[in-house]
């Protein structure tokens, strides 16, 4: 398996990467960890002419606390996140999520920014970033902007990023009480259903991935929640549930409720 030919450019700064994106447009792809992109390129399902490697850009792989928020560089790997003391202490649900992704080797390479930008409907992070009300910080020709996560996911493999924008970091509020529950697909170990629940007082925020072509906040659950996990019954309210060989609509809907219930009870 060998990809079609392409040019490879290692960007040394965000502005260089943005300029390259602007210059090459649709022919270019950003390479971070590459764990979704490279297999697709090897199967020649994806054939960019230019790969812009952003993994060497300094300052994009740190995890810091700024003004009460946890700021995670887009190039942080799942392993970085899973083992960060700061994340484990103040944003534990994200560490739980990172640990649930792929395997050791994938976690050593795959990045948070790459996963979010790729917007695979079965990826794990989307549930958690939604439940956490995170903010995606992106930079493009017009400069830097913050995208509320509620606006970020727009469809299958589709996000609010402009063609010339890359994610530089993701900002999270601190989360004390959060839980991620995943039912994985037995071959790929992607999420058939992934549910993230963030609780504060009597309120919950519930992010769900794997169920619809776009990850979503389960407002039905959030509205019905009054301390009882029975609210999980609303996990797929007003959602067009996906179907595949591993889980049809009925079973996937059921799993969404079960995983939501477990996350609410945790």
């Amino acid at each position: 398996m060998i990809p079609a030919k392409f040019d490879y450019i290692k960007a040394s700064s965000v502005s260089e990467a943005v300029d390259l994106l602007d210059k090459h447009g649709f022919d270019a792809k950003i390479l971070s960890g590459g764990h979704s992109l490279i297999p697709a390129m090897k199967l020649r399902l994806n054939r960019p002419e230019v790969l812009i490697d952003i993994s060497g850009i300094s300052g994009m792989d740190s995890i810091t606390e700024e003004g009460g928020e946890i700021v995670i560089g887009a190039n942080c790997t799942h392993h970085d996140i899973a083992t960060s003391k700061l994340v484990n202490d103040d944003l534990n649900i994200l560490a739980q999520t990172a640990k649930a992704i792929g395997d050791i080797q994938v976690r050593n390479r795959g990045t948070l920014g790459g996963s979010l930008a790729h917007a695979d409907p079965a990826a794990d992070y989307p549930a958690t970033v939604l439940a956490c009300d995170a903010t995606v910080v992106a930079e493009g020709k017009k400069g830097q902007r913050s995208i509320p996560i509620s606006d970020f996911f727009q469809g299958i493999f589709t996000t609010a990023l402009e063609d010339d924008e890359i994610i530089t970091s993701i900002r999270f509020p601190k989360v004390k009480n959060g839980n991620y529950q995943k039912f994985f697909q037995s071959a790929s170990r992607f999420a058939v259903v992934g549910v993230a629940v963030v609780k504060s007082g009597n309120e919950v925020k519930v992010g769900i991935t794997g169920v619809a072509d776009t990850p979503y906040r389960a407002k039905g659950v959030e509205n019905a929640y009054n301390g009882s996990a029975d609210a999980a019954d609303h996990a797929v309210d007003n959602v067009e549930v996906m179907s595949d060989h591993f889980a049809d609509v009925e079973y996937r809907s059921h799993l969404a409720k079960v995983m939501t219930k477990r996350a609410l009870e945790a």
Binding site: Q185, A187, S188, F190
Partner: peptide, 11 residues
């Protein structure tokens, strides 16, 4: 074959 890769064929 709809599951002809290790992403879909479970072992």
């Amino acid at each position: 074959m709809i599951n002809a890769s290790y992403m879909d064929y479970a072992m």
